[in-house]
Design a protein around this nucleic acid. Structure first.
Lengths: 152, 152
DNA sequence: CCCTGGAGGTTATGATATAACAACGATATA
DNA sequence: TATATCGTTGTTATATCATAACCTCCAGGG
């Protein structure tokens, strides 16, 4: 058995992943696949220890395992960390991008990732003026989501 | 002695604050003044436990004390938290503002706060379209500062 | 065959942050 | 004065988040 025994689908035999819509990127090591699948089944961002809880049943015991997988996934651009929540979400679009924009509800756990071209352009311009060499940027917008705002 | 014995200047008797340029807002409780003064003397963002170390000599013993003061200062808009660094900086401009923008160097501890009107406008527009009720936003831009970029 | 490097397992610990409760001082007001 | 209340502070304990260090396994290349 190798560390990269890629099935195209999760090896899970119990049908837990039937609602997964997103397609898991190929070539991930075992633990990164496990973590990716957990995140894919969650509508909301998840904390490292929550992911760990979900994977206890699969034999994962140590936080280290989760953090290593998260680190790998993040370096490959498959997930983002929401620093304000200490939580992680799948990236929801193709290709690399410099500015990640999130709408974070303060009343419910919902987070949406946006892609806002005009913001990206403005940022690049402003940063340029400041003589700063941008690598990545993360914009976390806090407030009330659609539903929570409606409910006052 | 009251909890709000405002002197206009830090009560520090040893001249440690001689380089302070910023003007501490009036009416702060004792611990918030202490923490504000520490941040004012630092060019760079500081972590809670670093602030605590600086205030050991003034008799502050517990992390709680620092976190409470930071919380008060943040709610009043006098400081910001850089979530990506778990660190805190003085706010560098007047009046309330919805979007905080930071240039965070990945090679040295330098962080600059910007005010970028065009970005703010774009964000508000984009958020509006998304049917989201924005409260605040924080943009953390990572890369190489001026000096570090020059040094390759 | 042996070496190497990526991936993984495990234990321990470090770093960050909050809960809970007690005590104090200022202010208001009866 | 009495006493109620509120914000601030002090203190202890604990929760939460993250990494260091060390060892093993195994696939692939000389």
């Amino acid at each position: 058995m190798t560390y990269n025994d890629d099935g195209d689908e999760p090896e899970d035999a119990r049908g837990e992943t039937e609602e997964t819509i997103k397609k898991r990127p190929p070539g991930l090591p075992k633990n990164e696949k496990l973590v990716w699948d957990v995140l894919a089944q969650s509508d909301d961002p998840m904390k490292a220890y929550e992911i760990l809880d979900c994977l206890k049943e699969k034999g994962v015991r140590a936080p280290m395992t989760i953090y290593r997988a998260l680190d790998g996934l993040e370096r490959k651009g498959h997930i983002h960390k929401l620093e304000g929540l200490n939580a992680f979400v799948l990236c929801n679009h193709e290709g690399p991008h410099m500015v990640q924009t999130f709408l974070v509800c303060e009343r419910c756990p919902k987070v949406r990732e946006l892609e806002v071209r005009s913001v990206e352009a403005d940022i690049e311009a402003a940063v340029d003026v400041s003589n700063f060499q941008m690598n990545t940027a993360r914009l976390e917008i806090k407030g009330l989501c659609h539903l929570c705002a409606g409910a006052e």
